[in-house]
Amino acid sequence: MKSEALVLGIETSCDETAIGIVRGRTLLANVIASSVDEHARFGGVVPEVASRAHLEAIIPALDRAIKEAKISFADLDALAVTAGPGLIGALLVGTSSATGLALASGKPIYAVNHLAAHVSVDALTHDAPLRPTIALLVSGGHSSLLQINDITGNIEKLGQTLDDAAGEAFDKIARLLELGFPGGPAIDALAKSGKRDAIDFPRGLTHAKDNEKHLFDFSFSGLKTAVARYIEATPATKKSDVAASFQEAVVDVLISKALLACTQSGIDSLVIAGGVAANSRLREVAAERAAKRGVELRIPAPLLCTDNGAMVAALGSLMVSAGASASPIDFSADSAMSVLEVAR
């Protein structure tokens, strides 16, 4: 019995065709082919464009990943693939490719949850195994707060965004400030020269009346409206001040709620993943406040925060070492797969 499983992971839930290979907790390959440029002229991800791009990109990505990992396909112990949530047409290219590989080779297949995979990528960055933890997932596609009791099978959902994802909010404000796409890095950069307390923008769902129903939910649409109104009313204002104050409002809400979840659950560990985890102010505030509360903060390396195949392989690898059974070959992809279901 090998202790370190060699696992290949496939991720195609949105616009990245991604293949990762891990051995146990060690990253061997992380190949990402993005169709983001093809979507730019449409102003957002077009599902059919993404699906076509996945079908074209997946075999070359497999070739590159095998080469990068310096292994042969036959060496692999198991396969893992994102079964949901995501765009159904995009997911199906990944799951059908994965079942094709599995049946051709007789290798076991783990059909896993994309959100759980985002958290499990922690295994590739930190040596110590993940204890029960709170997880904040923030990207252009999701904003969720999760309680991870056991990453291979026991996850609770604490809250999520009621409207825009955190990354979407960054993109929309960047558009208002004419900073281009994607908005996250541009706002992060501009905010560095602005005053964080210049404008007091609203923090959504943080008032006493929201706490009963939405203690751990997020809402960013009110903030977006407030920023738009502010820019309209005070056109002479410095863009850097708007960017810094907006960013501060988002970061404040995200980190406050995540740490409140730690306090309430008695869990002293916080993982932050997703593309927005790359935001420098978010990392700064998280580190500062987590330390103050005695919460261990774990943020994966930036390249592992955005959608990738390594996170899927990592979750597969954790499932193999936990002795979890593989998925049936006729599992179905599910665009709305709940995070309560770690694997099918």
Binding site: L55, I59, F73, L92, S96, G100, L101, A104
Partner: peptide, 15 residues
């Protein structure tokens, strides 16, 4: 359509 093609190309690639 893509289900069949992606399955087939992956199967052929693995073998």
């Amino acid at each position: 359509l893509r289900v069949g093609i992606s399955f087939a190309q992956a199967f052929a690639w693995a073998r």
